[in-house]
Design a binder for these strands. Structure first.
Lengths: 131, 131
DNA sequence: CTGGATCCTCACCGATACTG
DNA sequence: CAGTATCGGTGAGGATCCAG
C-alpha cells in the first residue's frame, strides 16, 4: 500500500494518530492556519493578531495561540510591563511548516473562481424517480 | 498589508469568504483530505474508499464525497448495473490541489516526532500566583 | 492589555434503519 | 452495493464576566 497513512480500525483508540492526522487535524481547525499566516510577516501582539483576523473571539485566539505554541510553531514572549505586553512570532518549525502551506494559499487564490464555478454548475443526481 | 486574506468584520456576513477560508475550510474538515489522498493513487469504489480509511461512517463518506464532487475535486462515475457500481477518482483540479498538499503530508511525516516532542516538553505559564 | 472561567448553543458526526 | 433519512450525543466555539 502506498498510502501516506494506515487505515484505522473503527473501534481502535484514536490515539493511533498517524502523523498526517495528528499534524493536519490541528492546523486544519478553524483558526490555526489563519493565525500562522497572520504572524508570518512580522511579530504581533495579541490584540494585533485579533484585529488582523477580525472575526475571532478572544477565547479562540487565546486557545489557538496556546496550542500553536505548545506544538512548537509559535514563540510567545512576555514583557513584564504594565499593562502587560505579549508578542507572538513563528519559530523555525513554524516557518518550516508555513513554507509548505504558502503554495496551498496561492493555489486557493488562483483557483478560487474555478471552485466557485464548479459549485454553481453542479447538479445533484436525482434522489429517486418520482412518479 | 501583505496578508493573503483580508480581515473580516465580526458582524459581517460570512459570505465574504476570502479564497483561503473558502477553499481550506472545506478540505480542512475531518475527512476531505483523507479521502482525496485515498483516491489519489487510483480510482476506487465507495466501499473501497471506506475500507481504506477505516474509521469513517457511511454517512460522512457519502457526504464528504458529495462535497468534493461539488467543488470539482472528484469525479463520480455511475455504472448502471445491478448491483450498482460507483467509482470515484480525482479530476484535474483535484490533482492540482493535491500536488500542493503532498508536500504538507511529507512534512507531517518528517516532523511528527519534533511536534510530539514539543508538546511533551511544553510547560504552561503559571496561571496565577497561589498564596 | 492579556488572558482565564463559565455558560450556552448549534453544527458536526456516529449509529441505526431503510431504499433502489 | 451505494447511498438517504432520522435521531441523539458531544464538543467547538461565541458571549460575557472577571482578574493580574
Amino acid at each position: 500500500m502506498s498510502l501516506p497513512f494506515p487505515p484505522v480500525a473503527p473501534g481502535s483508540d484514536l490515539a493511533c494518530k498517524c502523523p498526517v492526522r495528528d499534524v493536519l487535524d490541528r492546523i486544519g481547525d478553524r483558526w490555526s492556519l489563519l493565525v500562522l499566516l497572520v504572524i508570518a510577516p512580522k511579530t504581533l501582539r495579541f490584540t494585533e493578531v485579533k484585529r488582523a483576523i477580525g472575526d475571532i473571539s478572544q477565547r479562540m485566539l487565546s486557545q489557538t495561540l496556546r496550542t500553536l505554541e505548545k506544538d512548537g510553531y509559535v514563540l510567545r514572549t512576555v514583557y513584564p510591563t504594565v499593562p502587560p505586553k505579549v508578542e507572538y512570532c513563528l519559530t523555525d518549525l513554524g516557518r518550516s511548516l508555513l513554507a509548505r502551506i504558502d503554495p496551498l494559499v496561492e493555489w486557493a487564490n488562483a483557483h478560487h473562481d474555478q471552485v466557485r464555478q464548479a459549485r454553481e454548475s453542479y447538479v445533484p443526481p436525482p434522489a429517486a424517480t418520482p412518479l
